[in-house]
Design a protein around this nucleic acid. Structure first.
Lengths: 133, 133
DNA sequence: CTGCATCCAATATGATACTG
DNA sequence: CAGTATCATATTGGATGCAG
């Protein structure tokens, strides 16, 4: 059947595209810095070493679960290193790795672009909303 | 009660932090370029004007719903302009606006960083996974 | 102090069918 | 061709309680 063939083709094209997205480095990067808590935590770490509770205080919106999950994934990706000091109670410190520090200029570029252009985006949104009831 | 006060303080801090995140331009930008389909559509539009069906074909993973939603939000944000040609059947074309074009260098910077550094991230992940059973 | 486990709510995304 | 509408599913996030 022709319809079967077309459906089959779409499936293959989709699988191929999914594979492309998985392997594309830019896409991977987007998944990392496009994440809300990743970027918030990275922002704090740019200032230097911090402890778990410091982050928790600096980021009042984060749940313990998300904070742990975020730190784990940043550690797994090699952006952050975790060091435990055995004491009572234990102390855990997080620091940017060299790879993590290499990310800073890119984050700066994003901040710079945002500062210069996001007001225009806000204006475009207001304009759009005003004209689309 | 002391616990009440502490809870109250946390609530206030959280509200304040949420307000900060809403107003922070960098955070707004992250919401835009950190979105999977936004960035995929932007990537196509860098090449020039495209029609709805072109995008649908170029992005085999996207559902009609997501594609429409993505294009609407990019239009609302002022990155993309939409022009309708009345014919049978109708033609709708999407193009980058000037604001949208200003985004290109930033996207290039992301691609550049990703190409140079994501392999190291992949290695870090493999290493982490190997050591954490 | 740090962080894991569980359960639940919210949101994002997808599949499918239908229309001007 | 370019959507809209609806339903189903997946992913994400938060609250809570417990433990080393």
């Amino acid at each position: 059947m022709t319809t079967m063939t077309a459906a089959r083709r779409r499936e293959e094209a989709k699988a191929e595209f999914d594979a492309y997205m998985d392997s594309c480095p830019t896409n991977g990067l987007r998944g990392i810095i496009g994440n809300k808590w990743n970027s918030m935590v990275l922002l704090r770490l740019e200032q230097g070493t911090v402890r778990y509770a410091d982050l928790s205080r600096a980021l009042p919106g984060v749940s313990a679960k998300m904070l742990t999950q975020t730190l784990r994934s940043l550690e797994r990706d090699g952006f952050v290193s975790r060091s435990v000091t055995l004491a009572v109670p234990v102390q855990v410190e997080y620091t940017l790795t060299l790879l993590g520090e290499r990310l800073i200029p890119l984050l700066d570029a994003m901040r710079h672009w945002a500062d210069r252009n996001m007001p225009e985006v806000d204006a475009a949104r207001a304009h759009y909303d005003a004209n689309n009831p």
